[in-house]
Nucleic acid binder design. Structure first.
Lengths: 143, 143
DNA sequence: ATAAACCTTGGATATAGGTCTAAGGTCAAG
DNA sequence: CTTGACCTTAGACCTATATCCAAGGTTTAT
């Protein structure tokens, strides 16, 4: 069992953030101590880990809540519903990854065009990388 | 040359957003009409495309500004500086992609464990997927 | 030549996601 | 048995990223 400050420290967030997540319906401590302190279990800790990882990959707290609600409602959920929700999130992730890949290619092209030495950056600009990218997009559209 | 509303419509954003980006130092129109209208060039349009793509992959406006500043300062920049900045952003992207991949694997495991039929979701919960994930992480740490 | 649809500026409002403050209760160490 | 680190609540405040509004000037279509 962890007190709020311990759990916060373990994940390098503020206690306030945990209280905020609780108010948002994302993560409530499994119990309270006799003096009213929030007491978090190992499972709560895992849920928090999930929340933070999901946030890190760009999901909103609302998205995360909907994923976690599977857990809360599991007796009332049916597999098909769960699967549909999860598959939707998987598609979101795939879209994000495709965008990241495209952006990575653009920046990589910029880095490659760049001399890397102490000469002027006259010919290594974001705009030049973008221009080639636009060309590439046009090219793709042609077939 | 595009007027603000034309450019906004082309990217499905509001004119307000373009004025906002200008105030933030991200994108100023290349010129103004005699009556003071913002006039955007093809290059401005490309810069906007860059801004929106960068935003879509999770960069903040501040991050994007630092990338664009390469362009503005290019006469005063040296390739090495540009390359270092771009490489830092490339690393950011690689980290994001690794996180997305890991998250995708977790959710995929959940979807796979899920029957997909109209039975109770008793055994397809985010937490169960997480538990296996934690095990996997522990496993990785062991070698 | 006038309405619709633009544009201008400056400032108010909104939403997400926290972060901090005030006023006070609890707990472990010296 | 007090000091300092923790905890409680309610609510104010903050940053990022827009979006909207007011009051007025300009352009385009009819």
């Amino acid at each position: 069992m962890y007190r709020i400050g311990e759990l916060a420290k373990a994940f390098e967030i503020k206690s306030d953030t945990l209280r905020f997540y609780e108010k948002q319906g994302l993560l409530a401590p499994s119990s309270r101590s006799s003096s009213g302190y929030r007491m978090y279990t190992e499972q709560d800790k895992q849920t928090l880990s999930f929340i933070l990882r999901a946030k890190a990959v760009g999901f909103s707290l609302a998205d995360i809540k909907s994923l976690l609600s599977i857990e809360v409602d599991k007796a009332n959920s049916v597999c098909a519903d769960v699967k549909a929700l999860v598959n939707a999130k998987l598609t979101d992730i795939e879209v994000k990854m495709a965008e990241l890949t495209r952006f990575h290619i653009s920046l990589q092209r910029l880095a490659d065009a760049c001399c890397g030495s102490a000469k002027s950056a006259e010919h290594c600009t974001v705009l030049e990388a973008l221009e080639s990218d636009v060309d590439q997009v046009r090219h793709e559209h042609h077939h």
